[in-house]
Amino acid sequence: MHIGDYRVTYASDEAVFVNATSRFWLGILFIFLLTFPFLAGDYLLFMANVTGITIIGAVGLNILTGFAGQISLGHAAFIGVGGYTAAIFSSRFDIPFLLCLLLSGIMAALFGIIVGGPSLRLKGLYLGIATLAAQLILEFVFVHWESVTGGIRGINLPTPKVFGIALDNDFKFYFVILTLVILCVTAARNLFRTRVGRAFIAIRDRDISAELMGINLLQYKTYAFAISSFMAGVAGCLYVNFLKTVTPEYFPLLESVRYLAMIIVGGLGSILGAIFGAIFMTFVPEMIKSLLGLLGAIFPTAMSFLFPFQQVIFGLLIVGFLVFEPHGLAEIWYRIKNYFRLWPFEH
């Protein structure tokens, strides 16, 4: 039983895992994640892989938008830059997968810096509008620069290999994705233990006084864009390798909006929130689909309403969370955890 939490040195208070209980539960989670692919069926495995990739993208966006306060309506386009980089390098130049992963991240980060560079001067909604324009311009490039991107037909990718093992099924892919999710989440958590993460939050909360506290706004806003779009690029590379093809349809404005919805539903400015949001927003549309499938037995036309129903629920989730639970699923999770932390002796 856990009755209290005492730390006697500053070092233990600054430690990565603050107490035995959290280490224990993280261990349990890790074991579950490792055994999951052996137990799950094809569908769940596929969904887990998609979710993992989405988590990387959502964590990236939450660093930029949730923590550093820089609105981006172009996240899907950065994921797209990563995806196309991976597709072009692997299909044309036979660059190995792991190197592609790095190159995709770097390329997306470069684009992020180019778009984010002016963000020092652009505030709030003006930045939102500028990133919207960047999204639309990149979409146009994906479709129309046919000699490089393959136009609307896109590019097919060869089967990726990691250390000589061909990732030719979802089972093998799972472990690659899991490793990268753990790396990205850990890196993001680390960021907010140091001055870099603190500077991000300071810029979000009050950017003017942040500068007077010694923070170089241009430098740190650029950092935020670079890290965020690097993760987007990694997610993009994983996504197109996982699906073995890339087309412009994967990265529309709606996808950028979906990522924003994830971090809002999950919790702005929370790594855990990004994870929750990614899981939630990946599974909810699937749940609507199966619900309508069930209804199809009674109303034969139910399935034809799938897309509009998903639209309505998607919108309701965004509006509902913002109005009633602005800190998202992460906040709900902390409330539940705090309730049980000292249970049954909370007083």
Binding site: L191, R198, I227
Partner: peptide, 26 residues
């Protein structure tokens, strides 16, 4: 900064005195 604890607010003041760069932070 309302998004941070008292301790983190104070730590933020020391920003210029610290050396941690982007990569070592990650």
């Amino acid at each position: 900064y309302h998004g941070m604890s008292v301790l983190d607010n104070i730590k933020l003041g020391a920003h210029s005195l610290l050396n941690t760069g982007l990569f070592s932070a990650l």
